[in-house]
């Protein structure tokens, strides 16, 4: 074997080992909060649901609360959106469903979308903006340029005061409101989106809509 070949193979080996190391470290880190949640340490309800958090439905008995940390630009969130809508239809006001912002920094318009939703919330139209953003995710997601104009158009469509919407969109208070949600998510151990909490416990084993329904039914029965 030539020296060149030995060095090359050594370099490749080092890279492979480093990758394995990184993945292992990441797995272990990711497992820690999950393990804590599985071990039955629910997250403080005050962190998961603030007074100003957006409730899409409110259960009178307050027995079951489902909290979703989401990013309007995240594809997985867009993918679970129809399933969540069906669940909301099915359960209506038997469960409290809370939406929290958790924009991921690598999604270029996620933070802006969260601010758009918050600006709509200021005019009591959060549910409409929430639905519009997800239903049109394919057209505004993946775009490198700020989608402000498109969001203003959505605001007009759902009947918002457009001037006020634009002011609120740029208001630092709106950005702070989004950042507070994200900070709560981090405190609660959210690492990606969507992350669901059912009665304070992070749902980690949910793969399908049926799993989610089973978990909610169990909580309603319990």
């Amino acid at each position: 074997m030539t020296k060149n070949l030995r060095l090359t193979l050594a370099m490749v080996l080092v890279v492979i080992l480093a990758m394995i190391g990184l993945i292992t470290i990441n797995r272990n880190r990711a497992d820690t909060p999950r393990a804590a949640a599985d071990a039955g340490q629910p997250v403080d309800p005050a962190v998961l649901v603030r007074a100003d958090s957006h409730r899409l439905s409110t259960a009178a008995d307050g027995k079951v609360t489902l909290v979703e940390f989401l990013d309007f630009e995240c594809e997985a969130c867009g993918a679970v959106y129809p399933a969540i809508e069906e669940i909301r239809d099915t359960y209506g006001d038997r469960i409290t469903f809370v939406v929290r912002y958790f924009p991921i920094p690598s999604h270029p318009n996620a933070e802006l979308a969260a601010r758009a939703a918050q600006a709509a919330a200021n005019q009591d139209r959060f549910p409409q903006m929430y639905a519009t953003l997800f239903e049109n995710q394919e057209s505004w997601g993946h775009q490198r340029t700020p989608q402000t104009e498109r969001f203003v158009e959505y605001a007009r469509t759902i009947g918002l005061d457009v001037d006020r919407f634009q002011r609120d969109l740029d208001d630092p208070a709106t950005a702070e409101r989004v950042a507070r949600d994200r900070a709560d998510g981090e405190t609660a151990g959210v690492q990606g989106t969507p992350t669901f909490f059912l009665n304070g416990r992070q749902l980690t084993e949910i793969r399908t809509q049926a799993d989610m329904i089973a978990a909610i039914d169990a909580a309603l029965a319990g």
Partner: peptide, 13 residues
Amino acid sequence: ASYHSFLLVTWYV
């Protein structure tokens, strides 16, 4: 030049 592939891999890394 004797270390051609090592140089290439290092560059990529």
